[in-house]
Every structure is written in structure tokens, then in C-alpha cells.
Design a protein around this nucleic acid. Structure first.
Lengths: 343, 343
DNA sequence: ATGAAAGCGCTAACAT
DNA sequence: ATGTTAGCGCTTTCAT
């Protein structure tokens, strides 16, 4: 085993070199170039031999900066893993590390257990410079608001905005996604279409808006929105895509999971995809789309993460602004086998 | 905006309450129960109003414990994401947060760029209590060894061991996995089989060992190992599974990716899977196995992560032991459509 | 060119 | 029941 038992400190180096802590500190940090070359070399040599590494905790106590970001994003779905990857890479390029943590437990989707508060406190206590998070719900979330926002800790939101507070935000351009879906299907000759979503989710509403906007603006075309999680939704959908002659021939879904449900539904009803009905998904669910052959959207999660991290860095380096930014990444249509020309 | 501009400190509370910092510290930490109820209440009330949160940095500078783990595991594949999830959950139950980071760049698979060293220094400087990592390569890795091990920082390895140093380790029981694959195929009546792997990877060697051990121990059965990444491997494999009458009727592959390659290969050669040849994969690649219908192994990555985290906690709480533990999680065979009775 | 001293926020041993 | 003091490892201002 080498020299260091525990960690080398400035003091230890100073004593061995016969100089003061100040001198060592300045030399190792290249502050004040006015030291004798001999002293510099000596100090540096000792530091190297002792494998000196500064205690960032001590530095942070003084400077108030930790170079550490709090990131609260679940790591369980591929979409989020990729968002986190984007954040990670961008932060790392600026010598910032991330404390990654999340809370899955949302019994009623609106209560913030002790657990969530404990996590946030963990970040606050460790004095992260800021926090990037994907809200677990959209409505006023006391945990987030009181514990982060009110403390003046820079807060960047990803994927989902919160309804009660304006912050920097990076996410998907859902409106454009909806519009692109509509255009794709129109191009294939479809005129009567369905949007299957969930009006409780703002993201879904944006997709729906873009989708219907385009359809409404097109002669002869029309669209209708269905709540997936409502009673009798399945029956209603089946009716709409089978009922001749005004049946819908294309369905745009809030996500890939629902899309594959719809495909099963259609097949059970005796229709084939895409011959009788075209189906478009939306790619935040990490289904094996390629295998299923689903036409869907790639949301470029890594790019979303990178954008969030960039806003984080900007805000941490220049706090106090009140001009919050929103960066929306355009989703890319990926055409596969579930969409085809209307008959 | 509420009271706190910046962060409340013990000092601020003490001044307002008209007591000393010590008193406040003790009261808020429930140390020494010998304070007047009135004082306690007063101090607590002020702390609450100011939304006081202890500065963990300052505490750590003194105590030498940060309650923070360094975790160096790529987040890009589902397998690793799940390992990280297991680690996360276990650590969180013990009020430990993780600094998650990784390095993807390994040009020649054996050089540790500045980047990797910078990451490790980031963790060391922040004084993590220990580090959990998946080595990017198996041979002596100076970065890991010098920067972590020699400093006496507890080090737990996941998924892959290193050849030069003994540490706590959590991974897959590859030997058993190989054996189970052999038994499954034997049960289906296969007698002549192939193992397709990569002898540069210890994990592959263990699977191969288990696989061949069982075959060697079975009358009439035999197995052969092929290097996938060698020149002419494809041709060789095709020859071995087509050449009558002693052709191999089953192939066990180091991972799902290779397995699906082999399936294509077989089909291109005019064989059908599983009628003519059975194929077994191994589940660390996050392919959409279910869609492809591949018989494979589930490695229970979350369990591996949990085991690693538990060893981490044990070691951080009771350092200095030299009895390193190895925890191997048994992989579970998942039978799907790529294996069938031998003809 | 180098050092002394104060202080960041907190803990802990030791008074009173 | 509460206060005094020293110190963790570092930075920074101000001497010398």
C-alpha cells in the first residue's frame, strides 16, 4: 500500500514542504503566479506523490457551488434512460456530476409521500446547484414547489410541464408531432381519422390539438378524439372503425402501448392492419416497435436531455434571470408497416 | 417569496432564538435530551419557519461520511438501467444517494482516456463513501486500481470482474446458465450442439464451461465452442449445422444479439428455426426477445444491482474487512419459440 | 514571493 | 440546561 492513509490534505503537503497552506493552495490552483519555480516544483512533487485530491466538500462549503446536479427522473423506461444519458453527457462536459434519484410510488398520482420529500431533501442538503426533474404529476406539487422553487434552487423540467409554475422546460414538440401524423395519413389518402388519447395529460392534448388542427384545415377531412381510459372506449373505437360507409380508416394514438392495443382490437374485429385501418403510435414507451412494425415517432430523448442540461448550466452559471426558456424537440416520423394507402 | 434568501444556518437560528449554535445543533439532531421544552419548541419553530435544512457538506467535512455512492455504470442498455435501478432502490432505503456517471469511450478497449480518470476524480473529490462500478475491461485497469483501490475507497464490482484484484462482486451465475441451457436442449432430445461465444470475455467462458461440462457428462452428447468474432465464423457455423448426418441441431449463444444473427444465418442456409435447429440466447442485450420469440435467459439485473448495493452498504458501514464476497444471481431460462424437440 | 488570519457551516469534547 | 472552544479542509483578503 502506498503513502496515503486516509486522504492527503493541504496541511500535510504544507508541512512536508515547509510552507504554508496558503502557498500550497495557490500553487495547486494556479492562483497568483508569483511563486518561486523551485517552491512550485517541490509542492507539486509532494502533492503528486501523496496522490493529493482536493476535498470538494470543503471547497463547496466556502464557495457555495458543488458542481453537482440533482436529477429526478425514473430510470425504468428506455425513453427516460435516454433522456438521462443526454443530461449526463452534457453535464459531464462541464465537469458536473449528477445525483440521480427518483420516486415511483404515486398511489393516487397526486400525493407526495414522505419518500419523495426525503429524496428532495437529500438533494437540497447536499447543496446541488440545481435540479432537473420530470414531474410525476402535473398539478401543483407541493414537494417540488416548496422544497425547490421557493428555496431559489434552479429548476429545469423535462418531458412534462407543471401547471402552476413557469420554469425552463425541455420536451417534445407534441403539437408538431400531431400535425405530422395527420399529414402523413392525409398523404396516404385517409380522410376520416381518430385520435386516441387521454385528456388528463397535457402532452396528449397537444398531440391531439396538432392532429385535429391539420384535419380541420383540410377539405373533406375530419378527425375525432377518443378518451382511451373511459368506460366503453374499446367498443366505441371498434364501432367507429368498422361502421360503414363513414368509418375511420386511420388511428393516431397517444403512445405505442395504446397503438398496439388498438391493433389487437382492430384485428379482433376482423380488420387487418394496415390494409383496412392504419395505426400510428408515439414513441415514448420503448415497445419493440420495429418488431411489431409500428409506424411511430422518435422523440430523440437524448436531445431533450441535452437541451435540459444546457438550460441547467446556463441558469446555474447566471442565476437570477426571469426569462424562462422552453425548448421543444421535433419528433421524427418513423414509417413502418402499420400505415398504408387508404383503400 | 418566503423568508429564506440563501439558506438558513444554525447561526441564524441561534441568533434569533437567543441561544448558541451548539444548542440549536443538539436540539435539531436530538442529541442530549437535556434541553428545556420551551427552548426546544422555540428553536424548532424558528427552524421550521426558516425551512432550515442542514448543510450536508459541512457535516461531511467533519464526519468523513457523505451518504453518497459513486456509481459508474453505463445507462444505455436496458440491462444496465435495471442494474442501476436495483442499486438505486436499495441505497435509497438507507438514505444514500448515488452520483451516477459512466464513460463510453474505449477506443481500443484498453486505454483509459482522460475522461475516465476525470470521472473518477470527480467522485473521489466529492468524497463518495464508496464506488460501485462495471469495469469497462477486464485486465488491469490502472484508473480503477490506482485511483480507487489504492486510496482505500470501498469498491464493489458488478457484472464483470477484474482479473487483477479481488473485490466484492455481484453478477450472473454464468456457469449455471450454461448448464441450464445444456439441460434444456438435452431434455428436448438434442445431442450435438454448438456454443457461440467470445473467449476474450470471462463471462462467455463461464457460460461455455457450464454448457460443455454438462454435455461432456452426458452419454452420446457432445458440444463444441466457436468464436463468433473470428474470420470465417459464419461459414463454419453454417457448415456445422447443415452437414449431415452429424450436424449440430442446437446452438447456444453468448447473447441475444448473436442469437438473432445465428437465426438469420440458419434461415439463409435454408433451415427453419426451431424445426431444424434450436437457438438459445442470453439476456443481457435488451433485444425485443418476446417479439422475435427467442428462448433466452433472464439475468434479473435488478437483483444483481440490489446485491451490489447491499455489499456496498455492508462495506461502508464496516470497512476494513478482507473477506470479499461474490454474489452470483442464477439466470432464469425463458422458453419461447426458438427451441423445440430434436427431430 | 510567502504568510497570517478569518471564516464557510457544522460537530463534539469539555466546561459551567 | 446551556455555552466555550477547537477544528474539519479549504479559500481569500490583506499583510509583510
Amino acid at each position: 500500500m502506498a503513502e496515503p492513509k486516509g486522504n492527503a490534505t493541504l496541511k500535510a503537503i504544507a508541512e512536508e514542504a515547509g510552507v504554508t497552506i496558503t502557498t500550497v493552495s495557490c500553487i495547486l490552483n494556479n492562483k497568483g503566479g508569483k511563486y518561486a519555480a523551485k517552491t512550485k516544483a517541490k509542492v507539486q512533487a509532494i502533492a503528486d506523490r501523496l496522490k493529493y485530491r482536493p476535498n470538494a466538500l470543503a471547497t463547496s462549503v466556502r464557495t457555495g457551488k458543488t458542481g453537482t446536479a440533482g436529477v429526478m427522473i425514473p430510470n425504468r423506461h428506455q425513453f427516460y434512460s435516454r433522456v438521462v444519458s443526454g443530461i449526463h453527457d452534457t453535464l459531464l462536459n462541464h465537469d458536473t456530476l449528477m445525483l440521480l434519484c427518483w420516486n415511483d410510488d404515486h398511489p393516487d398520482g397526486r400525493t407526495f409521500g414522505d419518500k419523495e420529500r426525503r429524496i428532495i431533501h437529500g438533494l437540497v442538503d447536499r447543496r446541488v446547484d440545481g435540479i432537473i426533474l420530470r414531474p410525476a404529476h402535473e398539478d401543483l406539487d407541493r414537494s417540488y414547489f416548496e422544497e425547490i422553487w421557493e428555496r431559489g434552487i434552479p429548476l429545469i423540467l423535462v418531458d412534462r410541464e407543471m401547471s402552476n409554475v413557469t420554469t425552463d422546460f425541455a420536451g417534445t414538440n407534441d403539437e408538431v408531432g400531431g400535425a405530422l401524423a395527420a399529414e402523413h395519413l392525409l398523404f396516404l389518402g385517409h380522410r376520416r381519422m381518430l385520435y386516441v388519447g387521454d385528456s388528463n395529460i397535457s402532452t396528449s392534448n397537444h398531440r391531439q390539438d396538432g392532429f385535429l388542427r391539420v384535419l380541420t384545415g383540410t377539405r373533406d377531412a375530419c378527425g375525432q378524439a377518443i378518451e382511451f381510459y373511459s368506460w366503453g372506449a374499446n367498443e366505441q373505437i371498434v364501432e367507429l372503425i368498422t361502421q360503414q360507409p363513414d368509418r375511420a380508416t386511420a388511428v393516431f394514438c397517444i403512445n405505442d402501448f395504446i397503438a398496439s392495443q388498438i391493433m389487437s382490437l382492430a384485428r379482433d374485429a376482423g380488420l387487418s392492419v394496415p390494409e383496412d385501418v392504419s395505426v400510428v403510435g408515439f414513441g415514448d414507451q420503448s415497445l419493440p416497435d420495429a418488431a411489431v412494425g409500428l409506424t411511430t415517432f422518435n422523440q430523440s430523448p437524448a436531445q431533450i436531455g441535452a437541451a435540459a442540461a444546457q438550460m441547467y448550466l446556463d441558469r446555474v452559471n447566471a442565476p437570477g434571470h426571469t426569462d424562462y426558456r422552453t425548448i421543444l424537440i421535433k419528433p421524427d416520423l418513423v414509417v413502418r408497416g402499420s400505415t398504408a394507402l387508404a383503400k
